[in-house]
Nucleic acid binder design. Structure first.
Lengths: 326, 326
DNA sequence: TAGGTTAACTTACATATGTATTTTGATTTT
DNA sequence: AAAATCAAAATACATATGTAAGTTAACCTA
């Protein structure tokens, strides 16, 4: 081995970003001034963007799509829809929907003082954390409401709950458990552990939940990596499943297709979700149209945060409730 | 006359910015998608930046300059110094110092709940408003502490106080009076007007003030456009003035050089400023070094927000208290 | 309807940005 | 000490951005 990679410090990146975004200097100018190569300036700015060190806020970001939002409220029977514009080519919905969710949360928190809210996990929530402006809510607690997988911090509730709490200056409480119990372990016995019991009691007093969902296909991280091997996507589809919410697989009417799976799921039960005052679902993508509609129909959603493409699909195929396997 | 200029709507600009900053599309892509020319996209983005519709926040913006901040605290005998990096060429301190002030205010508001704070006026405060992220502080009141001039909204307390209140979601109270009384009008009689009396009483309970300052030269808006014609810059310099704070001209020790001028100034008296718990001065530029030091020496400043260039000058010329006329 | 006026479009181009490739040189290994 | 290794610098270049022309066409006026 030779030299160590030159890890740029936070202070360096901060200074570069200040010159670039506030003083509006060019990258070349900054490089000359700080006596480094332009490449390092360029990379510093890119890293700052990715890691959320610079946050770009747009005032009233969902002003434009009012028509679509109104139609969606009507069609899905929900209280509120937030629709953000998305790039139809190179379609990546995580970032824009995450940004819209972040803006929505900021707005809600400034108006109604949540004491606690629940979070599941997934890339959309991960993206929301990066876009959320730093705040100070010392009386707020972020509660993870779903067990995690072994892989990557976006896919377990620890990374998400602690991430939200970090930027919001709040406390957090995580669910240190897998999303699905291994076969043979008794659910009630498992949940009777002191730490878990205390955590589950917090579900009863949540002011809001941030929900996500997915369909039954390779596009679903849960289906691809999170299911115990005894549970197969084919079996779930046969049973009528079109997607999942909080690890529970639902049919097109939002009813669970497998008591067996439900019994093994470590997380907030759907019955309890109904009782939460604000049920916010962030979800987008053509493959999620079916499960989004099912969740809305069942009453699991007050506010839907999505993009215009998905919004339009939700309206168009008002009658197609097909499970997508692609 | 021919066609009307096509004033882009807020919704249009918002959508363009969303595509550009969140979805990271190129301006050409956005133009193609929305079927307008690239020029209009380009202009929309520029307008959004200037008008503060997009706000770029940098996490912990004054992390880098800790050494300089510590030295300044020591040298000036103040509680806190906030130093932001600045572009030495094409030197414009209003924007970066305004941005730093905005970040500082955001931070302070999230920690200590001010009930009210006072504002003077000037380009630096105007710039701070543009950089300040929208907030909701319904119990906060922004109080203008200085009369205004007839010209431009940045130079009267109405634009500044209402601007701060607007972005912070706060109330405001303005001082509807000129900065200097005309000769012959009795100050006490003038201030006894009901509306003014009520306003002046609020000065006693301020949690913080945002102060600015300037020197005695053409660079000072106050000197160039705000002085009654009986008061000349030459006369003020002869009397020992090196600059002004809240319309009061001070010598190098921070003492007023003209009881006459003070008698005509409509604004918060300096004696009252001393009593405010947080005295924040935002000021930068080589020409302000003298007056900044004088104000600090006199005890008018707890927190100084400035840039690295001015910071370094403040340290270097620890002994030069010259009034700059250039 | 002809002519003047001007916003918006078109074109052009200089500069800035993002990225890939090659070169350099410090450090470690043999 | 020579060779190997690899991060950082240098170089090169395709694309994006900002701005300044000239051109077109909508609209008003007379």
């Amino acid at each position: 081995m030779a030299r160590e990679p030159n890890e740029d410090t936070d202070a360096f990146i901060t200074e570069v970003c200040w010159h670039y975004f506030v003083n509006e200097m060019t990258q070349a100018e900054i490089a000359r001034m700080l006596d480094v190569t332009r490449l390092r300036i360029n990379q510093a700015i890119q890293r700052a963007k990715v890691e959320g060190l610079v946050k770009i806020q747009i005032e009233s970001p969902f002003l434009p799509r009012i028509d679509l939002q109104e139609s969606l409220k009507e069609a899905l029977g929900i209280e509120r829809a937030v629709v953000c514009p998305v790039n139809p080519d190179g379609y990546d919905y995580h970032r824009p929907v995450g940004a819209a969710l972040a803006a929505f949360i900021t707005e809600r928190l400034s108006v109604s003082p949540w004491r606690s809210f629940g979070v599941s996990w997934g890339l959309t929530l991960d993206s929301a954390i990066r876009k959320l402006p730093r705040g100070s809510f010392p009386d707020l607690e972020v509660i993870s409401i779903l067990g995690g997988t072994a892989q990557g911090s976006s896919f377990n509730s620890f990374g998400i709950a602690s991430g939200f709490a970090g930027v919001l200056g709040a406390h957090y409480s995580v669910l240190t458990a897998p999303i699905y119990l291994s076969e043979g372990i008794d659910r009630d016995l498992f949940l009777s552990q002191y730490a878990l019991k205390e955590h589950f009691e917090k579900f009863e007093k949540l002011d809001a939940v941030l929900l996500t969902c997915s369909n039954v296909s390779q596009k679903s991280f849960l289906v691809e990596h999170g299911l115990p091997k005894e549970i197969t996507p084919e079996g779930l589809v046969e049973a009528g499943a079109i997607g999942d919410v909080l690890g529970h697989f639902l049919d097109k009417d939002g009813n669970s297709v497998s008591v067996d799976v439900d019994q093994r799921t470590i997380g907030m039960p759907l019955e309890q979700v109904f009782a939460v005052p604000e049920k916010i679902m962030a979800a987008a993508g053509a493959h999620k149209v079916g499960i989004i509609k099912a969740a809305c129909r069942k009453g699991l959603v007050d506010t839907l945060v999505t993009d215009d493409m998905t919004g339009r699909l939700l309206l168009e195929q008002a009658e197609s409730d097909i499970a997508f396997i692609d």
